[in-house]
Structures are given as structure tokens and as C-alpha cells.
Nucleic acid binder design. Structure first.
Length: 574
DNA sequence: CGGAGACGCGCG
DNA sequence: AAAGCGCGCGTCTCCG
């Protein structure tokens, strides 16, 4: 076993896994240059654990989603990393590469991605995948070169410290994501099943061929057919059939959307609305979802860090970020444990206040209930204020809230000017960036063609170009807020993770009794912990939020409160 | 028969 | 005058 290497300053260690338990490592300096010879270690997990125990290390690897997932399965936890794949995507977006998601290390496309026609097919040092050990040194060298290149490119940013923070937070996000997938969200299959059975009837037998409807759905479908006076059974899930049947029954409607149906007065409408609600539950989160995604009392989704252009996470499989409120009943802490559900209150408007450095807005945002404070400032009620604010951030022009929006502009000119300037940049085809420097994608070639100077700017003569221009304006207007909110949330998550880990050198398998992050959804986290540690976790959340605010926004007057609820069941959190 | 696209709806 | 941001995923429909 090698001796942990310690030098002054921070230690980085580049790591590539071998085909079996071993791997290659090489120490680096903080600027990415070599700090020692490469070394082959027979048991990578043991090596990593030993280094973590000895002090602070930042692991440099291709991708946490691969390298860390494997280490964690072997019981090695780490505190910090530089994720070359994720940082590469951030840099690619910043440097205007059209499709950052498809760009792998140092511009090398990942396997499975379409090779752009105008680039040379490149060697795929990391994608040999199944290639055995002999590739190790080459892969290590490529990794080290990519890392050094990324550090240099971070250094050239107009705001290198902020971009470096973004890179660190994104990398830490990958660690948290892998750990959360491994931990899983506590999920009571029996509670879920009871809920389904209560609403839909008993689970229909699983047969081959077309699936059977649960009893309650079959009954509703029959009543809908009867109520519409149709001669043959109407499948309410088929828009075509349903539209035809509605028309035949004298109900004129342009779409079968719930919001549209709700405005009609006909005895079939409540039946249809109930059918839609129940069939949605059955299709999206029914028994087959339970079979596929819940095992051993845990729901284990796969998070996709950086999966959304704004920096929000996406998820793959199981619809982890769309758990219906109804089903939060099934999220129950283990006996003797509890859930700390923490939610950043009204995050996006507060982010706007901080971004725009609007003093009066910041004052309103210093209050506990921002919407109420805004309502007081513009002289309306809370719900109007909320709609006006959302309109300002989404690029709507208000509808009923038009008047409030105008008031908002007058009362908070800097905040209004901030989003409007972002919108203008987008309309002109520019790229905008979040507070930490995440760049939005450039407009597509199709957009440029459509809105180019040869296109007619007169809406009446060229409605397509005008619509496309406005659409991009709405996108960039929203991007600066949504992406900056994602920056804040990611930094908060990273800091909270460190605090829960018991300090930067915490390591090894989570001991029993250790609080664990189990869920992250844009502006909300859930920590599963022993009941007696809930207060400590709530405090950690508050500290993480305050620290994130300072790191991301500096000396802002805006506060970013997090509401924390200590509950046995997720459904009781709000 | 499989894939693409529209639609609809869950979440923030 | 009207419609507004970002996702994932299931079903139906159309098309090759």
C-alpha cells in the first residue's frame, strides 16, 4: 500500500480505474501539473479511503457518475472532486460549442453521440470502455491533460473565481447524486399500494396482451361512454375518440386538456376530469412503477447532473423530479428516523433581487413572505403580486396581471431592467450567463436563418420570425434567473453535503446513524436522519444556505431563508 | 412493427 | 390582443 502523499497546499490526485479492482493514480499540483510519478494500485477503493482519511484530496477523474459510483459500491466515500466530463460541458457551453451535452473530455464526443459532420473522428481514449489495462497510462495522460486544459480555461474567464466555484459545485453535485441514488428515498410500497387500491380498486391481474384497466377506471370509462350517448365504448385516453364523441354530444371544444374541460358545464365533465386524474396516477406511478423503481424500501432514481441547460438536475427513469404530491404519503422515515425537508422559500424572485442589486426589491426580499411584501409595495393582493412577478421572470405580459406588472416595473425599475436586458440579449441572438457563469446555449442555425436580417421584421408580414425572436427573449430572460437559482441551490447542496459528512475529511461508508441526503429537487432537499439528530441537521441547512448566499452573491441585502420541516412523512412537510 | 411527434400532465 | 420558463414520461397517432 502506498504512502499517502502530503505536500503544502491542496492535493489533487488523478485517477483512472482499471478493469478490475485496481487503477492508476498520479498526484497533481493545484495548477494541474505533475507532482509525482504515476502509480498502479491494486485496490483503488482502499487507496482512496486511505488518502481521504489522511487529509484533503481533490480527486480528478473522468466522471463521478462512473468513477465514483464504482468506488462507492466498494465503500469508498470522497469529499471533493474535479469532474472532467461536467466541467468540460460547462466550458463547452461557455465557449460557444453548439451542443455541449454531446461533448466529452477535451472536446472528444462521448460514445453514442452523433459525430458532427465537420469534425474529424477522434480517438476515444476514455471510451475504449471494455479495453483492458494496457490503455491505462494513455487514459491517465489524457485525463491529466484535459484537467490542466480546463484549469487554464477557467483561469481565462472574466470571473475565474466564480467559474471555479461553479466547476467545484457541479463536481460536488455529481458526488451527491451518486450518493443519493445509492441511499435511495425511503419509500413504503405498502402505503403506496393502499393508496392505489383505495383510488383505483384492486390491482388488475398482470396478463400478456393489452393491460386491463383497474375497476374504478373501467367503471368511469363506461359511465363516460353512456353520458356521451356513444354507441361504442369511448376510450377517454384517445384524444381523437374523445373529441369525436364530445362533438357528437354537442360539446364544442378545441382540446381535451383538463383546464379546457373544466370550463364546461356538462355532466360528463366531472367524470372525465376524475378519469384523467386517476389514469395519470395509474400510468405514471401505478403498480408497475412500484415494481420497477422501489425495492428494499427505497426509491432509487438516477439523477442527471447538469441535465437541464439552466444547471438544474434532470432524472432518468422513474420520474424522480415529478413525484405527485399525493404519493408523498408513501415517503416515510425508517423507525427511529425522521425526514428533514428543507425548501428555499421563493428562491427565484429573491435571486432576481440579488442579481439586479435592486435595493427596494432587496428590502422586500428581506421579509419572510416576499410576495406579501411586494403586494404591499405595489398596492395589490398577494396573488396578484405573485402572478406579476412570475410574469416578469417568464416573459408574460400579464393578462389580468398586466396592471400589476406595470406597477412592478415602476416600483422596482432595476429588477425590471435586469430581466428586460437579458430578454433583449436573447432576442439579438446573444448568449447570457448565470451569476456563476453558466452559459445558455446559442441560438440554433434554424433560429438564425429565421430571424436573420433578410427576414421581415414586420410581424404582420413575417409572424414566424417575430415569434421566434420573442421566444428566445423569454428563454434568456428566464435563464438568468433560473440558472442563477440553480447555482445557489447547487452550492447550498454541496455545502450541506460537506456539513452532514461531519467535515471535509469525513470518509468511509456512512456509519449507521449518519444523516444522509436522500432527495434534491431544484430548491428542495430531504435529509433522512435519526430523530435525535434532526435539530443538528436543520441547523446545518441554515448554515449551508447562508454560506451559499455569501459565496454566490457576495454582500447582498437579500436573504435566502430555508423552511425546514421535521416530519415522519414527506406529505406532512407542506 | 418501430420510431417520431403531438399532446397532456406531473414537478419546480 | 394574447401568451409567458424549464424538465420526464406515458399514450395515442401517423408514417415509413
Amino acid at each position: 500500500m502506498s504512502v499517502p502523499c502530503r505536500t503544502l497546499g491542496n492535493v489533487r490526485i488523478a485517477l483512472v480505474a482499471g478493469a478490475s479492482t485496481g487503477g492508476l493514480v498520479r498526484p497533481l499540483r493545484d495548477d494541474g501539473t505533475l507532482a509525482g510519478p504515476a502509480e498502479s494500485v491494486p485496490d483503488l477503493a482502499a487507496y482512496v479511503a486511505a488518502q481521504e482519511a489522511a487529509g484533503q484530496v481533490r480527486w480528478v477523474w473522468r466522471a463521478g457518475r462512473l468513477d465514483y459510483a464504482r468506488l462507492l459500491r466498494s465503500g469508498a466515500r470522497v469529499s471533493r472532486c474535479h469532474d472532467v466530463e461536467l466541467v468540460g460541458a460547462l466550458l463547452a457551453a461557455r465557449d460557444g460549442q453548439a451542443n455541449p451535452a454531446s461533448v466529452g473530455i477535451a472536446g472528444v464526443p462521448r460514445r453514442g453521440d452523433v459525430q458532427p459532420a465537420d469534425t474529424e473522428p477522434a480517438a476515444l481514449p476514455f471510451d475504449a470502455g471494455d479495453a483492458p489495462e494496457p490503455d491505462g497510462p494513455a487514459r491517465l495522460a489524457t485525463l491529466i491533460a484535459a484537467h490542466a486544459d480546463q484549469l487554464a480555461r477557467i483561469g481565462t474567464d472574466p470571473h475565474p473565481a466564480k467559474f471555479a466555484l461553479l466547476a467545484a459545485a457541479e463536481s460536488a453535485g455529481a458526488l451527491a447524486a451518486v450518493e443519493m441514488s445509492a441511499a435511495g428515498l425511503p419509500w413504503r410500497a405498502d402505503v403506496h399500494d393502499q393508496l392505489l387500491t383505495g383510488l383505483l380498486g384492486a390491482r388488475p391481474p398482470v396478463i400478456t396482451g393489452p393491460a386491463l384497466r383497474p375497476a374504478r377506471l373501467a367503471e368511469l370509462a363506461g359511465r363516460i361512454t353512456a353520458e356521451l350517448g356513444a354507441s361504442r365504448p369511448v376510450n377517454p385516453e384517445s384524444r381523437t375518440q374523445l373529441l369525436r364523441a364530445l362533438t357528437a354530444a354537442g360539446i364544442r371544444v378545441s382540446s381535451t386538456r383538463s383546464a379546457v374541460l373544466r370550463q364546461l358545464d356538462h355532466p360528463v365533465i366531472p367524470l372525465l376530469l376524475e378519469y384523467k386524474e386517476l389514469t395519470r396516477l395509474h400510468a405514471a406511478n401505478g403498480w408497475s412503477w412500484l415494481d420497477a423503481w422501489v425495492s428494499g424500501g427505497r426509491f432509487r432514481p438516477e439523477y442527471v447532473v447538469g441535465g437541464v441547460v439552466s444547471g438544474r438536475w434532470a432524472s432518468r427513469g422513474g420520474g424522480a423530479l415529478q413525484i405527485p404530491r399525493l404519493l408523498r404519503r408513501a415517503v416515510v422515515a425508517d423507525p427511529g428516523w425522521t425526514l428533514v425537508v428543507a425548501d428555499a422559500a421563493q428562491l427565484e424572485p429573491r435571486v432576481l433581487a440579488a442579481l439586479a442589486d435592486d435595493r427596494s426589491f432587496a428590502q422586500a426580499a428581506a421579509a419572510g413572505d416576499l410576495y406579501a411584501a411586494i403586494a404591499a409595495a405595489i398596492g395589490g393582493d398577494r396573488s396578484q403580486a405573485k402572478v406579476a412577478l412570475l410574469s416578469a421572470m417568464y416573459g408574460g405580459s400579464g393578462g389580468d396581471g398586466g396592471r400589476s406588472l406595470a406597477l412592478l416595473r415602476r416600483r422596482f425599475p432595476q429588477a425590471a431592467a435586469f430581466v428586460e436586458s437579458a430578454a433583449r440579449a436573447g432576442e439579438e441572438g446573444h448568449v447570457v450567463r448565470s451569476v456563476l457563469g453558466r452559459a445558455c446555449p446559442p441560438p440554433s442555425a434554424a433560429w438564425r436563418t429565421l430571424t436573420s436580417e433578410s427576414a421581415d421584421p414586420d410581424e404582420a408580414r413575417d409572424p414566424g420570425a417575430a415569434a421566434a425572436t420573442r421566444a428566445r427573449g423569454r428563454f434568456t430572460r428566464n435563464f438568468v434567473v433560473q440558472a442563477s437559482a440553480a447555482d445557489w441551490a447547487l452550492v447550498m447542496l454541496a455545502l450541506l453535503r460537506t456539513r452532514l459528512g461531519g467535515g471535509p475529511t469525513a470518509t468511509a461508508v456512512p456509519q449507521s446513524g449518519q444523516p444522509e441526503l436522500v432527495f434534491f429537487q431544484h430548491d428542495e432537499v430531504i435529509v433522512h436522519c435519526p430523530i435525535e439528530r434532526a435539530a443538528e441537521v436543520s441547523t446545518a441547512v441554515q448554515h449551508a444556505a447562508a454560506e451559499a448566499t455569501g459565496l454566490v452573491f457576495g454582500d447582498t441585502g437579500v436573504s435566502f431563508p430555508m423552511t425546514t420541516a421535521v416530519v415522519g412523512c414527506y406529505a406532512d412537510a407542506k
